[in-house]
Amino acid sequence: ATNIVSKVKWYNSTKNFGFIEQDNGGKDVFVHKSAVDAAGLHSLEEGQDVIFDLEEKQGKAYAVNLRIK
């Protein structure tokens, strides 16, 4: 899926990962520091509106092509 609009559930800049809620009630989506860095960001804030693409690797959903709404 591409261009999903949602909100950051939480992000831990010390552990370099977090999760984004899915508005459709699906499972929370993992977001890694590499996606945050690629977006030119230093961190994410809880409740922040984001747009991302969903990529599945080894049966897990990852946020990629992250951008701020």
Score class of each variant (00 low, 15 high):
residue 1 A to F: 12
residue 9 K to Q: 03
residue 59 G to S: 06
residue 48 Q to T: 09
residue 52 F to H: 03
residue 12 N to F: 07
residue 20 I to Q: 01
residue 19 F to Y: 06
residue 13 S to G: 10
residue 52 F to I: 06
residue 46 E to A: 15
residue 23 D to H: 14
residue 60 K to W: 11
residue 50 V to W: 01
residue 1 A to E: 10
residue 53 D to L: 04
residue 7 K to E: 01
residue 68 I to K: 06
residue 38 A to N: 08
residue 24 N to C: 11
residue 47 G to A: 06
residue 19 F to S: 02
residue 61 A to P: 07
residue 43 S to V: 11
residue 43 S to N: 12
residue 23 D to S: 15
residue 29 V to A: 05
residue 50 V to Y: 03
residue 7 K to S: 05
residue 47 G to N: 07
residue 28 D to T: 05
residue 10 W to N: 01
residue 53 D to H: 04
residue 61 A to S: 13
residue 65 N to R: 09
residue 25 G to C: 10
residue 55 E to V: 14
residue 17 F to D: 00
residue 32 H to L: 04
residue 49 D to W: 15
residue 32 H to E: 03
residue 62 Y to L: 05
residue 32 H to C: 07
residue 47 G to Q: 06
residue 66 L to N: 00
residue 14 T to R: 14
residue 23 D to N: 14
residue 5 V to R: 13
residue 55 E to M: 14
residue 54 L to C: 07
residue 26 G to S: 10
residue 61 A to R: 15
residue 19 F to V: 04
residue 58 Q to I: 07
residue 44 L to M: 05
residue 19 F to N: 01
residue 44 L to Y: 00
residue 31 V to R: 00
residue 22 Q to M: 15
residue 25 G to S: 09
residue 53 D to T: 06
residue 69 K to W: 13
residue 11 Y to M: 02
residue 13 S to A: 13
residue 69 K to H: 13
residue 53 D to K: 03
residue 40 G to H: 08
residue 62 Y to S: 08
residue 17 F to W: 08
residue 59 G to A: 05
residue 21 E to Q: 14
residue 30 F to E: 01
residue 3 N to Y: 08
residue 34 S to Y: 09
residue 15 K to F: 11
residue 3 N to E: 07
residue 20 I to D: 01
residue 68 I to M: 10
residue 65 N to K: 06
residue 41 L to Y: 10
residue 22 Q to L: 13
residue 31 V to H: 02
residue 63 A to L: 04
residue 7 K to V: 09
residue 3 N to R: 08
residue 46 E to Y: 11
residue 53 D to F: 04
residue 15 K to Y: 11
residue 2 T to W: 12
residue 68 I to S: 08
residue 2 T to Q: 12
residue 66 L to S: 00
residue 13 S to Y: 11
residue 28 D to E: 07
residue 14 T to E: 12
residue 41 L to A: 08
residue 56 E to H: 14
residue 61 A to Q: 14
residue 53 D to Y: 04
residue 25 G to E: 08
residue 20 I to S: 01
residue 5 V to F: 11
residue 8 V to Q: 02
residue 65 N to V: 03
residue 9 K to C: 05
residue 35 A to R: 04
residue 28 D to V: 05
residue 54 L to F: 07
residue 42 H to E: 12
residue 55 E to H: 11
residue 26 G to E: 10
residue 24 N to Y: 11
residue 42 H to G: 11
residue 14 T to D: 11
residue 8 V to H: 01
residue 10 W to H: 03
residue 1 A to D: 09
residue 26 G to D: 10
residue 62 Y to K: 08
residue 36 V to C: 03
residue 42 H to K: 13
residue 4 I to D: 03
residue 31 V to S: 00
residue 42 H to I: 12
residue 4 I to M: 10
residue 37 D to F: 14
residue 58 Q to W: 14
residue 32 H to P: 04
residue 51 I to C: 10
residue 14 T to L: 13
residue 32 H to S: 07
residue 42 H to Y: 12
residue 55 E to F: 14
residue 56 E to A: 09
residue 40 G to P: 01
residue 32 H to V: 03
residue 29 V to D: 00
residue 57 K to W: 12
residue 45 E to G: 09
residue 33 K to P: 02
residue 42 H to M: 12
residue 43 S to Q: 11
residue 53 D to Q: 05
residue 40 G to V: 04
residue 68 I to P: 08
